[in-house]
């Protein structure tokens, strides 16, 4: 089933995230990723939700979202030209013998080393989902101790589509 990226503008109020999440759960739709934060307008938050389903399911998701009083606008931006980003932080085992190898990998991915411990490195990377997976895969052999990842955020290129 196809993954869809929905840009949802909502009232920036307590409980709105719960309302949206509750709707997804209750209707049996699965959130693959979710990111939420305030926008240029402090009374509005924007959620970027990745949900998988055929067109009919996505249409239902969108209609059900619109029924929530705190939801202002829902746009399926999957087919738009997007800038999409996720952020990943990976703590990887790195004794001195493999450090230079890891540093090379980090450079290839245009990632950054943000912390150096005695036998560990923390790596920060941003990019789309594909890049996140690639960097994770290439660091796996060294031993990943911890990994945290944000949901995807996305914005449509060009002047159009101000969704708020």
């Amino acid at each position: 089933m196809k993954k869809h990226t929905l840009a949802i503008t909502v009232e920036n109020k307590p409980g709105v995230l719960t309302r949206v999440a509750t709707m997804f759960r209750r209707r049996g739709y699965n959130i693959e990723s979710l990111a939420v934060g305030e926008t240029e307008n402090p009374s509005v938050s924007r959620m970027t939700v990745v949900v998988s389903g055929d067109d009919k399911i996505i249409e239902q998701v969108s209609k059900q979202l619109y029924k929530l009083v705190d939801v202002i606008k829902v746009v399926d931006i999957t087919e738009e030209r997007l800038v999409e980003r996720e952020l990943i932080l990976i703590k990887v085992k790195a004794d001195p013998s493999v450090r230079s190898e890891i540093v090379q990998l980090v450079e290839i991915f245009r990632a950054r080393i943000v912390d150096i411990g005695k036998n560990t490195l923390i790596i920060e990377a941003t990019g789309d989902a594909g890049k996140m997976e690639a960097i994770e895969d290439s660091l796996k052999p060294f031993g990943i101790l911890e990994l945290v990842r944000t949901g995807k955020i996305a914005i449509v290129r060009g002047p159009g589509h101000n969704i708020s």
Binding site: G15, T18, R19, T22, M23, R26, L68, V69
Partner: peptide, 14 residues
């Protein structure tokens, strides 16, 4: 009660 009734109301307030 707001949490409890979220999925069974049209809207709710605290």
């Amino acid at each position: 009660i707001t949490g409890i009734t979220m999925p069974i109301t049209k809207h709710n307030y605290v």
